[in-house]
Amino acid sequence: MSALHIENLTAGYGKRRILENVSLQADAGEIVAILGENGSGKTTLLRAVQGIIPLQSGTVAVNGTDLASLNTRKRAALVTMMPQDHPAAAGLTGMDMIETAFYPSRGLFGTPTAADREKIRTSAESFGIAHLLERDLSEMSAGERQMISLLRAAVQDTPVLLLDEPSSALDFNHTGALFVLLKRLAAHGKTILLVLHDPSLALRYASKIVRMGHGTTEDILDNRMPDYEKIEASLRMLYPDLRVNRDPLFCYTETSSYKEATLC
């Protein structure tokens, strides 16, 4: 049984269809990268899986549970998303925002405990953003808010994580920290579905690469035992000048901290 099972998903905004019959499976511990041109339906796919927009047809299941049968809170215990836009609400700190991750498990009146806050601090330290916890969201840069949003999603501890362009505003070091964190989460059995615009990151870190176009999955490439010629041919449909180099220019390793991400 797949951890994430998307079957014939059709969705859109109002009567307008954006996604048409999208099917995709991902196992526990997999990192699935979605590549595609602007407007190809990548973000809409994540929003449909999270339940932000309703499905017109099809099903989405996590560990065999149909998400349509769950209310918003129960759904958020199985799947959570880091959206593309990150809130800059004045008066709220990074800690305030990350604490919302405990809502699915604790409910309306279950305030986060000292252990919960310690968990947030430990995660923030390993991601190199402990200094942002007490800072006002409105005083952060876009990249800093992105990291806070990512940490909220990670702390929520759901089996499936949806990340919409998670590295779009991050610097080189924090991009490294992001992928080290994602690999660690995948190693703990989390399934990660992320939208990327950088094929080199997808090739380096994803176990599966989904090429989207015109609101559907045009190709799903297995990157665990990569057939580089096939991958290159498929991705050239998106990026005509792309050449897949079997020796990546750089990588972020498990042993390197966010400060030590180097060329390799």
Binding site: I52, R73, D85, M97
Partner: peptide, 19 residues
């Protein structure tokens, strides 16, 4: 708490489980 979560926007709210 829902007031705080709502101030973070619709997508963050739904991702954290609040309608």
């Amino acid at each position: 708490r829902p007031v705080t979560m709502l101030s973070l926007g619709t997508d963050e709210c739904l991702a954290a489980g609040l309608s």
